[in-house]
């Protein structure tokens, strides 16, 4: 296995671990507002690493020009904060409960 393939493997493992971390945060954390942190960031970063892995694989190991994946990463990095923003807005509108240790609730009218 060449070092480029090792690089692909490393990026793929790192990416999937970050994706897993996002889901762990989703299951483990106490309330909606904290849960939101996992999927918006860890998962986005993980997917970025996976896109990088497949870019390295197709362009350098396989040797064919393939830049379509870049569009996936671009699209996700643009849309992830918008989705998070919409979700928090809806949650604040429905006045979802926060966990007891949250401070500054008066700032959000909860």
């Amino acid at each position: 296995m060449s070092w480029l393939e090792w690089l692909v493997a490393l990026l793929a493992v790192a990416g999937s671990l970050f994706v897993l971390l996002g889901s762990v945060a989703l299951v483990k954390l106490p309330d909606f507002y904290t849960r939101l942190h996992g999927p918006t960031k860890a998962t986005t970063l993980g997917l970025g690493a996976l896109v990088l892995a497949s870019m390295v694989y197709f362009n350098f190991v396989k040797g064919e020009l393939n830049v379509q994946q870049l569009l996936i990463a671009l699209f996700l990095f643009i849309t992830a904060p918008i989705t998070a923003h919409m979700l928090v807005k809806a949650a604040l509108h429905l006045k979802l409960k926060t966990s007891a240790q949250t401070s500054g609730k008066q700032n959000a009218d909860l």
Binding site: F18, L21, V24, A25, K28, L29, P30, D31, Y33, T34, H37, G38, K41, A42, T44, L45, T98, S99, Q101, T102, S103, G104, K105, N107, A108, L110
Partner: peptide, 25 residues
């Protein structure tokens, strides 16, 4: 994004009681 994700790893894997979530303006 890359650097600060490492901090979030520590926060998410650690116990929930240690978190100090807050709303700020």
């Amino acid at each position: 994004i890359v650097v600060a994700n490492m901090q979030v790893v520590r926060l998410v894997v650690g116990p929930n009681k240690r978190l100090r979530p807050a709303f700020i303006k």
